[in-house]
Each structure stands twice: as structure tokens, then as C-alpha cells.
Simulated assay, not measured.
Amino acid sequence: MEDLLDRFVTLWVVIDPIGTIPVFIAVTAGIDAATRRRTALQAALVSVGVLMFFLVLGQLLIDALDIGLNSFQVAGGIVLFLFALTMIFGESKAETDTKIVEADKSAQVRRKQNPAIFPLAVPSLASPGAMLAVVMLTDNNRYGPIDQGITALVMVAVIAVAYVLMLFAEPIIRVIGHAGSAIVSRVMGMILASVAANAVLSALINIIQTGEL
């Protein structure tokens, strides 16, 4: 149960459904309700597809490069820790992705970009941190097929929550405000930093005890 909770917390933090709400509002401003619902659904489905790709093929890449589990866990933990620092000290995901949208509009780029693909699915939901997290949480050397399947279900559940939150984006923002969303993002960053530090320390202890990278 504790391991399942760790997976849920890690995936919740790196996917950050709450931080996606302001981004969704920014990219769907001025369109009708039906189109907004389609955009939310497409963003959720695309992000699931992207993360499933890394969940299934990420391990093959690690094996092909002959990267040791402990080495990958240390590197992955460091990257997640740095990602957490950007959540704590930098701009929130909502602020960053909204600026991307505004910059794109100010430049008058008119290539019919689908907002469900960019920036909602990637990099808002299927962020680099989320891609790395699903690879770490489904490593064949640590997790069997059942555990990997559970991780996949947890990932889908988190994105499903994100989809529901996008459907109710405007009422939620009216309640918590953009400042509230930024606060939640920073708290999640602290949690992710703790998870990342634990992953690095566990790998280092394992290296000392076994001598295997």
C-alpha cells in the first residue's frame, strides 16, 4: 500500500493536474463549450499515449545502452530533484505555459496548432518529469508485470483527474485563483523533492552495499 501511495504521489506531482487548469483556460479562451470539452479529452488521450510510449519502451532504451539500475535511479532522482526546484523557486507550470501561449499569439503564428497537443498534452500533462517518472516506476529489474500494470493504471487515473479538472476549470480558478494554483504547485514541488532525494539515497546505499552500479 505504501509503495502504491508513493507511485501515486510521484505521478500526481510530475503530471500536476491542478497546475494544468490555468493553462487550459488560457489556450481555450474564446471557444465554445463543446470544443473545450473535446480539447480536454484529446489532451488527456494524447498525454496517456505519450506516457504509455515511455512506459513500454523506456526500459528497452535503458537496456540497449546497458545502463545500471542504480545509476539510472541516481540520475533520475537528480533530474526529478532539479525539476522540483523549478516548481518551488521558479515560475509555476501555469505561468510558464501561459507565457508560451501568449508569446505564440503575439507572434501571430497561424499554423492551426492544436492546443490539445501543445501545450496541454505536451509539455503540460506529459512533462519531461512525468516521462522520466514512468520509466523509473516500471523498471524491469525492480517491478514485475503486475506492478508495472498498476503503475500504468495509476498514471491513467491521475490524467483522468486532470481531465475532470479541465472540464471544471473556470469554477475552480474562481475559487482558488491563479495565486492558489501557484501555491499548490510549490507544495507539490517540495513533495517531489523529498521523493527524488529518497530515490537517490536509496540507490547510493544499494551501491555501497552491493558494489553494483
Rank of each mutant, 00 (worst) to 15 (best):
G129Q: 02
P128H: 12
S185F: 07
A116Y: 07
A199T: 07
G77C: 01
I205G: 08
E91G: 10
S92Y: 00
S194G: 03
F118Y: 15
L41M: 01
I207G: 09
A94K: 07
T20Y: 13
D139L: 15
A193P: 02
A130F: 09
D6R: 14
A84M: 10
A84R: 01
V14E: 07
A64T: 01
L61N: 04
I25W: 07
I18Q: 09
L165G: 14
Q59K: 05
M190R: 00
A116G: 13
L192H: 03
V135W: 08
A75G: 08
L137D: 12
D104V: 14
F81M: 05
I173Q: 13
F53Q: 09
S185W: 10
A44F: 03
I159S: 05
L137Y: 02
R37C: 03
L55G: 10
S47M: 08
T10S: 11
A160L: 15
L165Y: 09
I21W: 08
L85W: 12
M188R: 00
G211S: 06
A33N: 04
A44H: 05
F81K: 12
T96D: 14
V164A: 13
F8L: 02
D32Q: 07
A34M: 05
V74R: 12
D32G: 06
M155F: 07
L167S: 06
S124K: 09
L213R: 10
R110H: 15
V48T: 04
T39Q: 07
E170V: 15
V161D: 03
T86D: 13
S47C: 09
L153I: 05
L125D: 08
M190T: 01
I21T: 04
G180V: 02
G211H: 05
Y163D: 03
I78Q: 06
I15F: 05
A34P: 02
R7E: 09
A94E: 11
L213E: 10
